[in-house]
């Protein structure tokens, strides 16, 4: 849970506070649980709300839509995948990744997956994780972070392509280790 909060918030102290508060709130709730997993789900839903609150506060002080150097680098790398006519360069053409179920069973894959998430620039990662992990609708993510819809789309596309490229380089292509 702590790892999850850290991934989202990129701040160890904030993440610890959020998890602690979620645990306290869950215990104070005096609900009865049929089992350990029901309790976990409940604590987790509280943690989700805490994370969202913190992101909301952070987004007031930082400009999420501002393009940082990291984001500009990612865009340049993306553009370089294509020829002048905007079709794939032969060497950059996406290849098949095999059987997804098999990959997702591999413990090592999840380490690479987390590393790749951590490689995403902070703001890009935040938008992506709100959408994919906290499962907000895209218009909610935009609203929470005061982004236009088209800006949101650009950021999500950037995140997905960055993650895709990282996984392709560090997991799906044997022998290549750089992200």
């Amino acid at each position: 849970m702590l790892k999850f909060a850290q991934l989202q918030l990129r701040d160890a102290a904030l993440a610890e506070d959020a998890v602690q508060e979620a645990l306290v709130a869950a215990l104070a709730g005096e609900r009865s649980f049929s089992g350990r997993s029901a309790l976990k789900t409940w604590v987790f839903s509280i943690l989700r709300n805490k994370i969202v609150d913190l992101i909301r506060v952070q987004s007031r002080t930082t400009n999420v839509s501002a393009l940082g150097d990291d984001e500009a680098d990612m865009d340049a790398t993306f553009e370089a995948l294509f020829k002048d006519n905007a079709h794939w360069r032969p060497e950059a053409r996406p290849f098949g990744w095999g059987d997804p179920a098999e990959t997702l069973r591999e413990e090592r894959f999840w380490e690479v997956f987390e590393t790749c998430l951590n490689h995403l620039p902070e703001k890009t990662a935040r938008v992506f994780m709100m959408r994919e992990f906290l499962e907000f609708e895209t218009d909610e993510v935009c609203r929470e972070l005061s982004l236009t819809v088209s800006n949101c789309n650009v950021i999500l596309h950037r995140a997905r392509n960055g993650l895709r490229r990282c996984l392709e380089g560090s997991w799906f292509a044997p022998g290549v280790s750089a992200c």
Partner: peptide
Amino acid sequence: CRGCSNFREQMNFLRLACRRFMQRRNG
């Protein structure tokens, strides 16, 4: 376009991986 159909499968894989990642975290 073979490259783009692979890209689509990769996008589907990312979504699946995110869902699975959450299930692993969550319980």
